[in-house]
Design a protein around this nucleic acid. Sequence first.
RNA 1: GCACCCGUAGCUCAGUGGAUUAGAGCACUGGUCUUCGGAACCAGGUGUCGCAAGUUCGAAUCUUGCCGGGUGUACCA
Length: 560
Amino acid sequence: MDTKVSQAVRALYGSVDVDVKVTRPDPQFGDYATNVALQLGAKLGKNPGEIADQLAIQLRTDEELKEVQVAGPGFINIRLSDAVLSDNLQHILEQKDVYGKPNTYEDKIVVTEYSDPNPFKVLHAGHLYTSVIGDAISNLIEHAGGTVHRVNFGGDVGMHAAKTMWAIIKRLGGENPDGLSDIEQSKRSEWMAAAYVEGTNAYEDNEADKAEIVALNKRIYQLHTDSDHESPLALIYWTCRKWSYDYFNAFYDRIGTHFEKYYPESETAPTGLATVLEQKETGVYQESQGAIVFVGEPYDLHTRVFVNSEGLPTYEAKDVGLSIKKWADYHFDESIIITGNDITEYMKVVLKSIEQFEPELAHRTKHFTHGNVKLAGGVKMSSRKGNFLRAVDVLDSAADENEKAQGNRDEAPVLGAVKYTFLKNRIGPDIVFDPKESVSIVGNSGPYLQYAHARAVSIVQKASKTAADVALGTFDDYERSLLVKMTEYPDVLDSAVRELSPHLVCTYLYELAQVFNRFYEKSHVLDDEREGVRVQLVTAYASILKNGLILLGIPAPNKL
RNA sequence: GCACCCGUAGCUCAGUGGAUUAGAGCACUGGUCUUCGGAACCAGGUGUCGCAAGUUCGAAUCUUGCCGGGUGUACCA
């Protein structure tokens, strides 16, 4: 449609520099609309209404357009002919699940990094949120032709690990690895989460404990440097570290996310440290007050510590190491790091420092941020106080809700409800989550769409007529509005990929389902004289719904 | 203090690099249908689009200044 309008403009006004924009207006106005005449009016100093009239005359010569009307100060509203819509329907049916596939990332290698939980800590609602977001974005890029490598970065060393380990050792009555066998498998993650809280409180409240934790932190780094898997401390550390990864993997299995690679900080730290020390010689990093920093002020950023005065790499250096490792492992065209927006400024400093010695790497790296999950009523989550939402709490409350309504504990609608709740909003602002209200299973929700899909599939399976039985010809109003809505899908995907905005897909699918439900309410499919046509419409509709849901990471079973 | 993000219906949010009458869901009230699978459909809104200026034929959308909330700002991650 862009092309058609552009051609009409060129035919009448030559090569005017104008940004031809075609939108999808309210269906009562048309299938498409453009305000190009208003733009031209301003540019050429003519009456926009007259320009619109002339363009309309030009466009009416196109047989593929059924209606071209001028409205208001110079908008042009356009409707497609039924013949074109028939072609579109055939196209959807033939292409099936690849209908509307954009090629934005064709032949591109993309590394997406998200979720990033820390071993020795609990998975909270924020990890679930960022995992769902990261997954949907990865899916979108993949669908647009990219080769996507999903990776996960996590702190298996550092103060949080030391805090947890300190409390664990205390609970074991010393560095006594045998005591770990008393902890039941199902209790392990909770037990470690409690140890983290205990260690954090000790660190904040007691100077002597704090000193012990700081010392323990260094010893844990040393375990890695020495490849120590034998000493009592090492046995405790490696066992608990494995418990954490088991816990993560079980969780990712449950939500259907799979990472190709974990980058534990213990592996990126040495690379990061070495790089920072090396680049200190070239002047990228500087010594300051016993630490090694990157001075950000010349770039309108702030100064951050990369190696602390103990000689240990901070998160900054570990991130430098991570970037270098990812670059070496994948030689990506684009690296997308998806995190909360609280580290936006931090990441700018890290990337700016990398840009000094590895510009190509920095330029190909994109930091994409989302808001934080907040509890309703402005309650702040605090792991210390224990009033935070664990990731499993969110899933379990959705499961309870679903059981109340449907009487079963199927996971598909639970994932649908949770993921859709997280994805339907624009990525950026904080999202408010009310554990009591839980997640929605009616209205604009995942289960609504899953159900809509299952119902459509069920109808198709019962149909006796197929596409071949009927000539398409013309469409009635309900058929037509469904079909027009379906032709919008490629545009939606294109925007969603360009803007990495899964919520555009959510909004669209919901609107599509609403249009379908209106059609469905008024138009009988089976045993109707128009069964052949309608079955095709329902088939195409189901394939788009399924495609969209899968892109969002939401299961779309044929039966619920 | 400085930097960045966010203020749209009672609540949670859409609103595409400007436009035809600012829209959904939830909640509330009423209705539809002897279900092609009711997780449905239909009807019901007097919203200071945070406030105020500015630019324009036209601003929720762009600019500036305020107000309010959040986050970040050197040895945590």
